[in-house]
Design a protein around this nucleic acid. Structure first.
Length: 494
RNA sequence: GCCGGCGUAGCUCAGUUGGCUAGAGCGUCUGACUGUGGAUCAGAAGGUCGAUGGUUCGAGCCCAUCCGUCGGUACCA
C-alpha cells in the first residue's frame, strides 16, 4: 500500500488501551468491591454513558453551549449530549424519572466516566469509578455507612487500618468558617469560594501557602501567580485557627470546631451532623485509626451540601522509576441533598461515595496486593505433529473439562516457536505428544517457569541440555491431569 | 489555561564548535538447529533525527511556530 495513503494509528490524549494483565486485575478488584457493597444490601444499576447535557447539569443557557470539562456534541436533533463525567448526576436523573422507587434507594454502579482534563500520571480522561449511594434519607446513618463501607472495602482489598485513612468533614462546617471570617469584615460569595479553595490546598502548599492565598496571593516555583482572597490579618487568623483544630478523639475535634463557629447556625448544624456520624461509627467500633474528622477536607466546590469524606493511602508508594510519590485520595464522596430537586422540585436527600478504580488498582499493584497474571489459560497443548491434531483436540477437551484453562496451539509454526509462544503468552505448562510419546502411551509435560529458571545456567553444551530437558517429564497419559495440577499448584494457580 | 524541561530505531541512549551514505546496546526477525523458548555464533529488518517554515554553500545540531510528552501551577462536577 502506498505509504501516503496509510492511516497513522493514533490514540486520543488521556485515553488508554488496557491490556489483559491490567484488565484481569481490575476485574478481580471490582469483584471484591462488589461483594462488600452487596453485603451492605446495595443493588446494581447501569445508566447510559451518554446523557443530555442539561441532565448532567452542565448546560450554560446564557452561552447556549455546554460547560467546559466535558466531552459534548450535538446529536441528530441538534440537542447537546455529553459523555457522563461522574455516576452521581445520572443517578439523580434516574431517581427523578422513577419516583416510585422504594426509599431509601441503595444502588452501586461501576463504569467509565469522562472528563476533559489535563492528563497526568494516574490521571486520565477516561477512568473507572465504582460508586455506592443511598438516595432518599437525610439520616447521618447513611453517611456513616459510607465511611464504614469504604473501610471494609479497602480492608477487603488487603489495605490494613493505619495504611489508609478515611477523613470526614462537613460543608456546613466550612460555611461556618466563612461566616466566622465574615464576622471580622465583609466576605463576598466569590471570596468565600477562594477561602475554601485555599483550605483545600493545605497539604500541597502548607500553612504559609494557605495564608498567602488568603491574603495577597501566592507565586509558586514555576513563576505562576495565584490571586489571593485579600483578607485582613484578623480574618486570616480565623482560618488559621480553624486549620489548627486537632483532637485525639472525634468528639474532641467536634468540641473545638463548635467553639470556633458557635455563632454560625449552619456551622453548628454541621458539627451536630459530624457528632451523629461519630456516634454511628463508634457504635460499630470504627475508631480513629480508621475514620477521623478532618477540618481540611473540602472536596471540590459544587453539589455537596453536608458531610464530605475522602479516603487516602497513608503509606509511601514507590513507582516503577523508584520515585516515592504520595498517592492522593482514592475514594471520595459526600452528601448532595439538592441534586434530585433540580429535576422534580422535591427535596430528595442523598449521599454516596466513589472509588477511583484505576488509582486504587495502581496502588494495589505497587503493593503487590493484586495478582497480575496476564493469561487465562495456564496450559498450552502444542502441535508437534500436525497429523495428530485430532488427538490434541481431544486432550484439550479433557483438560478443559477438568477445569484447567487450556489453549490449543492453532498457529502454523514449528515446535520451537510453539514453546516460545507458550512462554511469551504466560502459560505455565506446555504439553507435547509426538510419535515417541504416543507409542509409549505417554505425554511430555514441561514446566515452563522452571525451565526458564534452570536455563540461567544452561552452559555451553546446548545439545546435552536439549536431551536432558530437566524441566520436562514424560508421564503416562492417565497421569496427565494430576501432573499438571501439581505443577500449577507449585505456582499457586488453579 | 499558564510557566518550564524533554522529543534521534520497538526500548535505553551516543552523535564532536553546523560538515560525507546518522551509530551502539537491548529487543525483534532469519539461519546454524525441520522433537523443544531461554545458551552461543552469523546475518537481516527497522529512522523523511516529533511536524512545518526559516537562517546557511550545508541543519539531528541555530531560530520561529505547532504537536506530543514530562514536571509545576490553575480549574475540577
Amino acid at each position: 500500500m502506498n505509504k501516503t495513503l496509510r492511516t497513522e494509528p493514533r490514540r486520543l490524549k488521556g485515553f488508554r488501551d488496557i491490556t489483559s494483565a491490567d484488565l484481569l486485575a481490575r476485574d478481580r478488584m471490582i469483584a471484591r468491591i462488589r461483594e462488600v457493597y452487596e453485603r451492605y444490601g446495595f443493588t446494581p444499576l447501569e445508566t447510559p454513558m451518554l446523557e443530555y447535557v442539561d441532565a448532567l447539569g452542565k448546560f450554560l443557557p446564557e452561552a447556549d453551549q455546554p460547560d467546559g470539562g466535558i466531552f459534548a456534541f450535538r446529536d441528530e436533533d441538534e440537542e447537546w449530549v455529553a459523555l457522563r463525567y461522574d455516576l452521581t448526576a445520572p443517578l439523580s436523573r434516574f431517581v427523578a424519572m422513577n419516583p416510585e422507587l422504594p426509599k431509601p434507594f441503595r444502588r452501586y454502579q461501576v463504569g467509565p466516566v469522562f472528563r476533559v482534563e489535563k492528563p497526568g500520571p494516574g490521571r486520565f480522561r477516561e477512568f473507572y469509578q465504582f460508586d455506592v449511594d443511598t438516595v432518599g434519607t437525610a439520616s447521618m446513618l447513611a453517611d456513616a455507612e459510607c465511611c464504614m463501607i469504604m473501610c471494609d472495602t479497602l480492608e477487603a482489598l488487603g489495605i490494613l487500618p493505619g495504611d489508609y485513612a478515611i477523613r470526614v468533614n462537613n460543608r456546613k462546617v466550612l460555611s461556618g468558617v466563612v461566616d466566622a471570617v465574615a464576622a471580622h469584615g465583609p466576605v463576598t460569595p466569590e471570596t468565600g469560594l477562594t477561602i475554601l479553595r485555599a483550605i483545600d490546598k493545605l497539604d500541597r502548599v502548607g500553612v504559609d501557602g494557605v495564608r498567602q492565598l488568603l491574603g495577597p496571593g501566592r507565586r509558586d516555583e514555576s513563576g505562576d501567580f495565584t490571586r489571593g482572597a485579600a483578607l485582613s490579618a484578623a480574618q486570616i487568623d480565623v482560618v488559621s485557627d480553624y486549620l489548627n483544630v486537632k483532637g485525639t478523639t472525634r468528639v474532641a475535634v467536634c468540641d473545638e470546631l463548635q467553639r470556633l463557629i458557635e455563632k454560625s447556625p449552619t456551622g453548628c448544624e454541621g458539627v451536630a451532623e459530624l457528632r451523629e456520624i461519630d456516634e454511628a461509627l463508634s457504635n460499630m467500633e470504627y475508631g480513629v485509626d480508621r475514620v477521623t474528622i478532618d477540618p481540611t477536607v473540602v472536596r471540590g466546590l459544587a453539589y455537596y451540601t453536608g458531610p464530605v469524606f475522602e479516603g487516602v493511602l497513608t503509606f509511601p508508594i514507590v513507582d516503577e522509576e523508584g520515585v516515592s510519590r504520595p498517592f492522593g485520595s482514592v475514594v471520595g464522596g459526600g452528601r448532595y441533598d439538592g441534586l434530585v430537586e433540580r429535576f422534580t422540585g422535591q427535596k430528595i436527600p442523598a449521599t454516596g461515595t466513589s472509588i477511583g478504580v484505576d488509582r486504587l488498582l495502581a496502588a494495589l499493584k505497587t503493593l503487590g496486593r493484586i495478582d497480575t497474571q496476564s493469561t487465562t489459560a495456564s496450559v498450552l497443548v502444542t502441535r508437534l505433529d500436525k497429523t495428530l491434531t485430532a488427538e490434541y483436540q481431544r486432550l484439550v477437551g479433557e483438560l478443559r473439562a477438568a477445569g484447567i484453562g487450556t489453549e490449543l496451539y492453532v498457529g502454523t509454526q514449528g515446535i520451537g516457536k510453539q514453546f516460545k509462544y507458550a512462554s511469551d503468552s504466560g502459560k505455565i505448562v506446555a504439553v507435547v505428544i509426538g510419535e515417541d510419546e504416543r507409542a509409549r502411551g505417554e505425554v511430555a509435560v514441561k514446566d515452563l517457569r522452571l525451565g526458564e529458571e534452570l536455563s540461567k545456567n544452561i552452559g555451553a553444551d546446548r545439545r546435552q541440555w536439549l536431551e536432558q530437558q530437566p524441566a520436562q517429564l514424560s508421564v503416562a497419559r492417565g497421569e496427565l491431569i494430576p501432573t499438571i495440577k501439581r505443577i500449577l499448584s507449585r505456582y499457586a494457580i488453579g
